[in-house]
């Protein structure tokens, strides 16, 4: 057929790319960056949670934590496999960063990335024990669900499919967190839980990125984003605040 159209137009009208051959250079760079952010966050999240397994107060909790560690590593692997089709060296990638490294609890890095990897800033803060890990998992779990729903629509079909497969499993991780938190609250941990919520709330919020991200327009034209950081953040705030309220906890400001 004679009627062709530029890839830029095609993408701007909602077109889907299906393999590495289709992908123009600047799209490739944005796509790789998006994938690296996800992979590094899952690797760092999994690594951070691994230490928490031994603090689990019971067998069910131990299994839940171990499962989260396992499945987040699996999710990193699935997206890394998509990166590999663009040439990334997966074996070296999986070990090129110390995924367990954390900053001080009171470091203040806002939404900026630090160190050598692309993990979301929230994964630079250390977990302090079981309860803290559970609260972080509830708040971040909800954030991941909102973010993955957005990224399940990316215009690179192999990645969209990976995210669509990952979304229900991550949703389950957030639910495991909720179950754990309800149990802790039944045992009277309200005050400690509130302190953890106060600590993690702004840090998870920052993981949605700057409200005025300059990159968003280009990502939108590429079909790699559809909604803005501010819109996603607003969804998370409303959704998570309601959940906390129902548990007798309060979302800060």
């Amino acid at each position: 057929m004679a009627d062709t159209m530029s890839i830029a137009d095609y993408l701007a009208r909602g077109g889907v790319l299906s393999n590495p051959e289709n992908v123009p250079p600047r799209y490739r760079a944005e796509l790789m960056r998006l994938m690296a952010t996800f992979v590094d966050s899952e690797m760092a999240g999994s690594a951070g949670f691994a230490d928490i397994i031994n603090e689990a107060p019971g067998i069910a909790e131990r299994i839940a934590a171990a499962r989260i560690v396992l499945e987040k590593a699996d999710h990193a692997g699935r997206v890394l496999a998509v990166m590999a089709e663009f040439g990334a060296d997966t074996a070296k990638y999986a070990t090129h960063q110390p995924w367990t490294a954390r900053l001080a609890r009171d470091a203040d890095i806002g939404p900026t990335r630090s160190g050598g990897d692309m993990r979301l800033s929230v994964f630079h803060y250390p977990l302090e024990g079981w309860l803290d890990a559970v609260v972080m998992n509830v708040l971040m779990g909800r954030a991941v669900t909102v973010q993955l729903a957005e990224f399940s629509r990316v215009s690179y079909q192999p990645l969209a499919e990976a995210f669509r497969a990952i979304l229900p499993v991550e949703t389950r991780h957030a639910e495991l967190g909720e179950e754990g938190l309800r149990k802790l609250l039944e045992d009277g941990a309200l005050e400690a839980a509130q302190a953890s919520v106060d600590y993690w709330w702004p840090r998870v919020a920052a993981s949605f990125g700057a409200a005025d991200s300059t990159r968003l327009d280009q990502q939108r034209d590429f079909g790699l984003r559809h909604r803005s950081n501010a819109e996603l953040l607003a969804d998370w705030r409303a959704d998570t605040a309601a959940l906390l309220a129902e548990m007798g906890l309060r979302a800060p400001g």
């Binding site: 790789m32 990166m83 990334a88 060296d89 990638y93 090129h96 990897d117 692309m118």
Partner: peptide, 8 residues
């Protein structure tokens, strides 16, 4: 992303 020559 990686700054280590592994991701491209």
């Amino acid at each position: 992303a990686c700054k280590a020559g592994v991701c491209s």
